[in-house]
Nucleic acid binder design. Structure first.
Length: 334
DNA sequence: TGTATTTGACCGGT
DNA sequence: ACCGGTCAAATACA
C-alpha cells in the first residue's frame, strides 16, 4: 500500500536492491543483503590493495603509504561492519532497525488522515554524520546551474526568513551527497545566503565535463572519495553563479582559516572583484578542498557512513590516470 | 502518471 | 527542552 508508493518514489535505499528488500520487512534478509554488499565492498578494497601493491611494489612510504593506510582503514571498516552484522547477538541491524514501517503499528491509529509517522520511519536516519565542509555564498539568485531538490523548509529561531533545504537531484541515482541551505539575507532580503554542504559527486548530465581549469591553476592534486573535488573540477562553477560570491569557507567544526589576511573582521570573506568572479569561481571548490583537508583526514576514522577521504598527491593528473586507468580493466574486468 | 514541492513530524545534538 | 536538519505523506504540477 503506502509503503510501496514511498519506496517507489523516494527510493530510500541506496540501490534498487535495497529498496526492493525493504519491502520484505525482514531484518534477517536485510542483514544478509547488507553482508553481501559489505563483502562486495571489501572485495573491491582488496583489489585496490593488490593494485596498489603492483603499482608501488617496493616502497611504501610517503603518499603511497598514505593510500595504503587508508585502504587498510577501508578494509578494516568493512571487516568490522561484517563482524557486527554477522555476530549472532547483533540486534536488528542498526541501519534497518527502522525498516519495518508497517509491522509495528501497535497504535494503528489511522484515524486522523494527517500523516502520523510511525516510529521506525526514520530508516537509517543520520544527522550530520558527514564531516563535510560548508561554503557560504551570497547570491541574488538561487539558481546556480545545478539541479537541486527541495526537501525541507524551516523557520529559524533567530531569523526572520525561513531556511530552505535542498539536496542534489542525483542523491539517490548517483549517491551524490551535496546539499545546500538557502535563506534570504537578513541584511538584504533581495539576496540569498546559500550554504553548500558537501560536494557533488554526481555527474550532472546537463553539464558538460569540459571545464577543467588549466593545470597550473589547480592546487596540488587531490584524490577525493566521496567528495567531488576532482569531478567538480570538470563542472561549471556551479555554486558560483555570476551573481554570487563566496563569503566564507568553513568546516563543520571550525573556521579553518581565512585565506585573505585582513578580512577577519567581516563575517564573510568577500572576493575582491565580483565582476571577475566567474573566472575565479572554479577555484572555490579547490579552496574548500584544501582548507578541509586536515579536517577530513582527521575525520576519516570517525566516519563510517560515508567515505570522505582526500589526500594530496604530488603528481600530475594524467599520472593519476596512468595509475588508475591501467587498473581499470582489472577492477572492472567486464 | 511521474516528478517536484510543501509541510508537519521525527530525531539528534547541545 | 529546544533548535535545526531530515524524513515522508500529502499535494501540486507538468
Amino acid at each position: 500500500m503506502k509503503t510501496e508508493k514511498i519506496l517507489g518514489r523516494v527510493g530510500r535505499g541506496r540501490s534498487g536492491s535495497m529498496a526492493s528488500l525493504e519491502q520484505e520487512n525482514s531484518p534477517l534478509i536485510h542483514r544478509r543483503t547488507a553482508t553481501q554488499v559489505l563483502n562486495k565492498g571489501k572485495e573491491a578494497a582488496n583489489k585496490i590493495k593488490c593494485l596498489l601493491q603492483e603499482s608501488f611494489p617496493s616502497e611504501d612510504h610517503g603518499k603511497n603509504s598514505m593510500i595504503g593506510f587508508l585502504n587498510e582503514e577501508i578494509l578494516d571498516s568493512f571487516s568490522e561492519a561484517l563482524i557486527i552484522l554477522t555476530s549472532e547477538g547483533a540486534p536488528e541491524t542498526p541501519l534497518d532497525q527502522a525498516s519495518t514501517p508497517c509491522s509495528d503499528e501497535q497504535g494503528s491509529d489511522h484515524s486522523s488522515k494527517k500523516r502520523k509517522v510511525q516510529s521506525g520511519r526514520r530508516n537509517g536516519y543520520r544527522r550530520r554524520a558527514h564531516p563535510y565542509a560548508s561554503t557560504r555564498v551570497l547570491s541574488k539568485t538561487m539558481d546556480d546551474g545545478r539541479t537541486w531538490r527541495k526537501y525541507g523548509q524551516k523557520d529559524i529561531f533567530s531569523s526572520k526568513h525561513p531556511r530552505s533545504y535542498f539536496r542534489c537531484t542525483h542523491k539517490y541515482d548517483q549517491d551524490c551527497q551535496a546539499t545546500r541551505q538557502v535563506q534570504r539575507s537578513e541584511d538584504d532580503p533581495s539576496m540569498y545566503v546559500i550554504t553548500y554542504i558537501g560536494e557533488h559527486t554526481c555527474r550532472d548530465p546537463t553539464k558538460s565535463p569540459h571545464l577543467l581549469p588549466p593545470s597550473h591553476q589547480r592546487p596540488p592534486f587531490i584524490i577525493s572519495f566521496g567528495l567531488e573535488t576532482a569531478q567538480d573540477d570538470q563542472q561549471e562553477p556551479q555554486s558560483n553563479s555570476p551573481h554570487s560570491s563566496i563569503l566564507k569557507q568553513e568546516s563543520d567544526e571550525e573556521v579553518v582559516s581565512d585565506p585573505s589576511p585582513g578580512s577577519s573582521a567581516s563575517e564573510f570573506l568577500m572576493l575582491p572583484d565580483l565582476g571577475t568572479f566567474e573566472q575565479s569561481a572554479p577555484m572555490a571548490p579547490y579552496m574548500e578542498t584544501v582548507l578541509d583537508q586536515c579536517d577530513v583526514m582527521s575525520d576519516v576514522h570517525s566516519s563510517n557512513s560515508c567515505l570522505d577521504m582526500e589526500f594530496e598527491i604530488p603528481f600530475e593528473l594524467n599520472e593519476i590516470d596512468d595509475v588508475f586507468s591501467l587498473d581499470h580493466d582489472k577492477l572492472f574486468p567486464d
